[in-house]
């Protein structure tokens, strides 16, 4: 019962993400979806992973909201709009994915081997990290370092070699045309938006 409530929350919130106009609401609806999944994890005897999902996703969706607001026009959705392309194809692809997965789920026999009630799952994870999967753990460290360096290089303007955008002019939309970029009279750089 509780599981179904959280499932419904996860799916409905996930769906609403793409219906709402406000970018902040969209980010935090996604967060609600993650929190519901985290709660289901708690029900599945994964006490650590459940709360960890909530805190990791809380942070990530906060940052997501910052960037959504930063780069989306009309971030609060004061003028409702729908900015989609290949809409029908996407709906079909999403539905096909769901149906395909569902068929796979129903046709596959899964072993039934639930986690034992008193099993120290957090200890297990710790031992796994320091023992068999030590290499994964340390290479995750290196990957994260690479991510940090890459994101700093890409996102910040100043660097050893001067400003990142020095001398750059937005390229034209057509060869030989005017530099592209947003102008207030030119919504979204000349794309046809579907207003609903």
């Amino acid at each position: 019962m509780v599981f179904w409530v959280f499932s419904a929350v996860a799916v409905v919130a996930g769906w609403r993400v793409f219906c709402t106009d406000s970018m902040v609401r969209a980010s935090f609806l996604l967060l609600v979806s993650f929190i519901a999944v985290g709660a289901i994890m708690l029900l599945l005897n994964a006490p650590y992973l459940g709360f960890a999902t909530i805190f990791m996703m809380g942070v990530e969706m906060m940052v997501m909201a910052l960037f959504m607001v930063m780069f989306m026009m009309n971030p609060a959705g004061l003028n409702p709009m729908m900015m989609v392309h290949q809409h029908r194809f996407s709906i079909a692809a999403g539905a096909a994915a769901f149906v395909g997965l569902a068929i796979a789920i129903f046709t596959t026999g899964f072993p039934h081997d639930p986690v034992a009630a008193g099993r120290p799952v957090i200890h297990d994870l710790g031992r796994e990290l320091l023992g068999p999967s030590m290499l994964i753990f340390e290479s995750a460290g290196v990957t994260l370092l690479a991510t940090m360096v890459a994101s700093v290089i890409l996102s910040s303007r100043s660097g050893r070699f001067g400003a990142a955008d020095e001398g750059s002019v937005p390229p034209p939309l057509e060869p030989g045309g005017e530099p592209a970029g947003r102008r207030p009279d030119d919504e979204g750089g000349g794309h046809a938006h579907h207003h609903h």
């Binding site: 026009m73 009309n74 003028n79 409702p80 709009m81 947003r182 207030p184 919504e187 938006h193 609903h196």
Partner: peptide
């Protein structure tokens, strides 16, 4: 006014809820 009676038009036009959308960047 506007598609939903909110006073705005398009993505950045009109006066939704009585105030204009932000100035051009």
């Amino acid at each position: 006014r506007g598609d939903h009676g909110q006073g705005g038009e398009g993505m950045m036009g009109g006066v939704p809820y009585g105030r204009m959308m932000p100035m051009p960047p």
